[in-house]
Nucleic acid binder design. Sequence first.
RNA 1: GCCCCCAUGGUGUAGCGGCUAGCACGUGAGCCUUUCGAGCUCGAGGCAGGGGUUCGAUUCCCCUUGGGGGUACCA
Length: 442
Amino acid sequence: MRVRFAPSPTGALHIGGARTALYNWLMARGNAGTLVLRIEDTDRERSTPENVEQILDALRWLELEWDEGPISQVSRSERHQEVLQQLLDAGHAYRTNATADDVKAYKAQHGADRGFRGTEEAEGAVRLRVPDEGSTTVHDLIRGDTVFQHVHIDDPVIARADGSVLYNFAVAVDDMDAEITHVVRGEDHLSNTPKQLLVYEALGANPPAFAHLPLLHGPDGKKLSKRHGAASVQELRDAGFLPEAVRNYLALLGWGAADDQTILSTEELVAQFDVARVQKNPAQFDETKLRWLNGRYVRELPVDDLTARLEAFTGRTGLREAVAISQEKIQTLADFWPLAGFLFDGPGDDGKAREKWLDADHRHALVQAREALVHLDPFDVDHVEVALREVVESSGRKPKDVFQPIRVALAGTTVSPGIFESLCVLGREESVRRLDAALAHA
RNA sequence: GCCCCCAUGGUGUAGCGGCUAGCACGUGAGCCUUUCGAGCUCGAGGCAGGGGUUCGAUUCCCCUUGGGGGUACCA
């Protein structure tokens, strides 16, 4: 099996493209196949080296390594010329100066009865000859057969007058030359497939198998865009998602494991993925579910691993202790610093929290807690807990009336890792210092 | 306009003629509890509509409606 991922470098790699890459990768890995990466850069206006690099970068982050390429489509222009001439010589294609307006006028006149057929001229763009009669059938692994009547298909332009080739021609030639056996791509390419099939036919070549994936939509059912939050792979990375969680989530967008499993390791995905089981209808990207899934992965990571990732993500070091006590409370890497940053940068300043939990009455509790802690030795989680629970006991207060003031004193907010754990990470000196500061802050 | 694809709760899906329509996210209630989170228990919520075919349709066919894609000398 030889599959390919052929993005057009017109911007960042979007989630839909990432899923297409993932499905191709899963097929290749699960079938001892080869994944070819090809950059469809025949649109000179929009294809830039920066965009290409962005896409490679996104694929690397997702850990979807390719086996061949990246091959620039433009670099194959000589070969394209050769095949183009072949079609011209054989009469499968012809030159004409007919413009888009001419086609429009023609269609206005003939409606759906006849596809546009140009008249051959010495110069001009190259169009592929579509037979007047008959039809072309696309055999799709996901959708079954789709029949396209030739009378509805206009002779497509396959090369500009200057000889530069166009998409529908280039893909066919490139896939043929690369001996691609399975073309797995977005559904937006389905309608153009018969034109590509006609190119194969004119060349006397056997076409690959096709599988057109349903498109992805945003939460409002419309096309996915920036408005919907993270829409590109780099945005996902910046939002603190784990590549393995993203792979798991993306695999489930349009496909389901036979046994209803939701959490699937990459190995399991490789073993179980079956393109024929892919859904036909479009799916909506749901960041909430991705967050949940990411949280599951975060909690299962060894602390050292999570620490390494968080240190890379935040650019800070010495995070291990803080990571250990925060792991079960964060869903993404980006959640870490807002939760545990106070351990390093001092308490935050949530006015409402201070107002509610550091009023006169609660300050009483704080004083008692300080007394219980100031000479505590050893200062570890178990002893801190015992000491503070004694304060709760002896003061006759509710637990939260003792713990929350401490939390606010330490963190400056009401959200933090466990209070005993936080105290221990800060150490006795610093903890007492913060309690004193809160008490002084009248 | 024309061509094509699609349709199970709010979301992602399982189902491939006979099931109390399953699972997951989210959501409601409760439990746990030092906030948040995590975890546990219970609940609400679905086959777009109409015709067929059949002893029997979520499942097969047709129509309608709705969504999407294509219709570029973009990919």
